[in-house]
């Protein structure tokens, strides 16, 4: 049984004019299927407007399906009675670090979620300490979020979700507004949570380098899952990825170009070491 299962998931945005008449209907999710096992690190790739953020909001019950079903940890997301249980099970981190931090002091922000779900005071403090430590932000607990870097703010946001002790965290383009250092920090924090706390991760992104270490990758375009597989399998299809308005990591692209030029290289080379080894074999094999 997967922790998240989408079957034929459809979401339509109905756009109304000022009088309330329906002006147009946009299909953001178009019969989407997806399954996540507990403890997995999943990446969902897609360009802006591919529907990936709409999907993310469904897992957190911020949006409900127009058609089809979405099951989160055995709960049907279409059923409004499940909303709060789902939000506790599947926490969400958003793109803009500034617009999701509510309090003016780091530790108070992390405590916000547990306060909302009625956790007793002593336990809130324990949870705040645990979650801040798990993302390496404990020593900043009394700082103002305004004085932190983008990567640090995003880690605070992750801690804020962790404090609700979710089984799963969805990160909706958490690094899009960060500099390279911030990106690395956030990604490292997420991987640690996945490895050490066994939290299921769904990382939504358009940066290809971030999905290299994922267990499984879904590629979305026009509200549909258009590719899925392990990172190597996905990256071996350079041309298809480019059709879906995505990049491949430079090394994979280089290997692809060399392959095209006639070198006998395997598909889906991901790291520099792999490429050098392969090139060495070609030369020594002669």
């Amino acid at each position: 049984m997967g922790i998240i299962e989408a079957k034929n998931l459809v979401h339509e945005y109905i756009i109304r004019d000022e009088e309330g008449n329906v002006e147009s209907i946009q299909t953001a999710l178009d019969h989407m299927d997806l399954k996540v096992e507990p403890g997995q690190f999943i990446a969902v790739l897609g360009h802006n407007g591919s529907g990936k953020s709409t999907f993310a909001k469904h897992i957190n019950a911020l949006l409900t399906p127009t058609e089809g079903t979405l099951i989160v940890d055995g709960m049907d997301a279409s059923d409004e009675d499940n909303t709060y249980a789902i939000r506790q099970t599947a926490g969400m981190v958003f793109q803009n670090p500034d617009n999701q931090i509510i309090a003016s002091v780091v530790q108070e922000d992390v405590g916000f979620g547990p306060e909302n779900i009625g956790v007793p005071t002593d336990e809130i403090w324990e949870r705040v300490e645990r979650s801040l430590k798990s993302v390496g932000m404990w020593k900043y607990r009394e700082h103002s979020p305004n004085k932190l870097s983008g990567g640090q703010k995003q880690r605070v946001a992750i801690a804020g979700v962790m404090a609700m002790e979710p089984k799963c965290i969805i990160l909706d383009e958490p690094t899009a507004m960060l500099d390279p250092d911030g990106r690395k920090e956030v990604l490292a924090a997420v991987h640690t949570l996945n490895r050490e706390k066994g939290v299921t991760i769904i990382l939504i992104t358009h940066y290809m380098e971030e999905v290299v270490d994922a267990d499984y990758v879904y590629v979305m375009d026009q509200g549909k899952v258009v590719m899925e597989g392990n990172p190597r399998g996905i990256f071996s299809q350079v041309d298809t990825l480019q059709e879906h308005r995505l990049d491949v990591p430079q090394i994979t692209l280089l290997a692809h170009e060399l392959q095209r030029a006639g070198l006998p290289l395997a598909d889906g080379i991901l790291t520099r070491e792999e490429l050098i080894d392969a090139l060495e074999r070609i030369v020594k094999g002669r």
Partner: peptide, 29 residues
């Protein structure tokens, strides 16, 4: 530096005598 720059330098460190000036994928190829 760009990934390809690392690649070229690492190749040279392994004794593969490749020109290290490349900064783009095309140049590296």
């Amino acid at each position: 530096a760009p990934q390809v720059t690392y690649l070229m330098h690492e190749m040279q460190e392994r004794g593969l005598d490749v020109n290290c000036d490349a900064t783009t994928v095309d140049e590296a190829r």
